[in-house]
């Protein structure tokens, strides 16, 4: 079976800006994939190419096996996109917006599903409000609803939680996680790295139009980010034998050591005991995606 999204050798330039260079990417069915990268890395451009909103200079893109240019109708039926910008049509109410969107796909009797999405996104009280009168967070939810009217197997969300408060953000993630559990393939971009880390099984990182990393979340955390041991000792120095483990130059009474794994904690403690050091405080921190991200972005 072909992957849900298949990007092959895709490049795209805007004038002199090379927005994407030779991107290859497969997203499997049912995967929860995060596309990360700093501002201007090319995330939205890649999404636009997958959605057929822009044309690639080279390479090809397929969604559920359908070529996005040659077989655009089938490709677009398979895909729901939540755009990054808060766009809306000021002429219509929330329900009208969803009915029209559903109609564009030829689904005219879709009210049950529309009611269900309104319900699930907490939009029922606003169903008949004009789009103009909604707050930014509400508009964002309508965008999510619009992407779902035709029950697409693949859903791409471009920063769905930008400018959304904590409560709503939690709610949205919960909603998206449920969609994934129901079998939808999810691709999202976000600048909230903890969220990507906790939700997504695989991560691609873009930097200046290149895919610099493409791996499972688990591997990335293992590969790029060590376990950190924060030690506090009063009036002591760090034994010379432990100096090579320092993650950063130590300061007064406090050191951060980078460890390979949990077993190494034992070794460090044994060494401290052997050198008669007394520990005043100790904290073990898990690797996190933010560090991975920072080290990758520095490195490439």
């Amino acid at each position: 079976m072909r992957p849900a999204i298949e990007v092959r050798g895709v490049s795209k330039a805007y004038g002199t800006v090379q927005a994407l260079s030779a991107i290859d990417l497969d997203v499997a069915h049912g995967e929860f994939f995060a596309l990360l990268g700093p501002n201007g890395a090319g995330k939205t451009t890649l999404i636009s190419l997958i959605a057929g909103l822009a044309k690639a200079d080279a390479g090809s893109v397929r969604v559920m096996g359908h070529h996005v240019v040659a077989d655009y109708q089938q490709a677009r039926r398979s895909l729901g996109v939540v755009p990054q910008e808060l766009v809306f049509d000021p002429f219509f109410s929330v329900r009208e917006t969803l009915r029209l969107q559903s109609g564009y796909y030829g689904l005219r009797r879709n009210d049950n599903w529309i009611d269900e999405i309104l319900e699930r996104l907490d939009l029922v009280p606003k169903a008949d409000a004009n789009m103009r009168s909604l707050s930014g967070g509400m508009k964002r939810r309508v965008l999510v609803a619009q992407a779902l009217v035709h029950k697409p197997p693949v859903i791409i969300l471009d920063e769905p939680t930008a400018g959304v408060d904590v409560d709503l953000r939690q709610g949205l993630w919960e909603f998206i996680r449920r969609l994934n559990e129901e079998g939808h393939t999810i691709v999202l971009t976000t600048h909230y790295l903890e969220e990507a880390e906790s939700l997504c099984t695989r991560i691609g990182m873009l930097k200046q139009g290149r895919m610099v990393v493409l791996d499972s979340t688990e591997n990335l955390l293992k590969r790029f980010s060590a376990l950190k041991l924060r030690l506090r000792m009063v009036g002591e120095s760090l034994p010379d034998s432990l100096q090579p483990l320092l993650a950063a130059p130590g300061s007064n009474g406090e050191w951060v050591l980078a460890l390979r794994d949990y077993a190494q904690v034992e070794e460090v403690l044994a060494e401290l005991r052997r050198c008669h050091r007394e520990i005043a405080g100790m904290e073990l921190t898990q690797p996190d995606l933010e560090e991975v991200f920072m080290s990758i972005m520095r490195g490439y």
Binding site: A51, L53, Q73, P83, Q101, Y104, Y105
Partner: peptide
């Protein structure tokens, strides 16, 4: 908001 039309089949 033209994307809403451009995204459809």
């Amino acid at each position: 908001n033209i994307v809403f039309v451009l995204l459809t089949p």
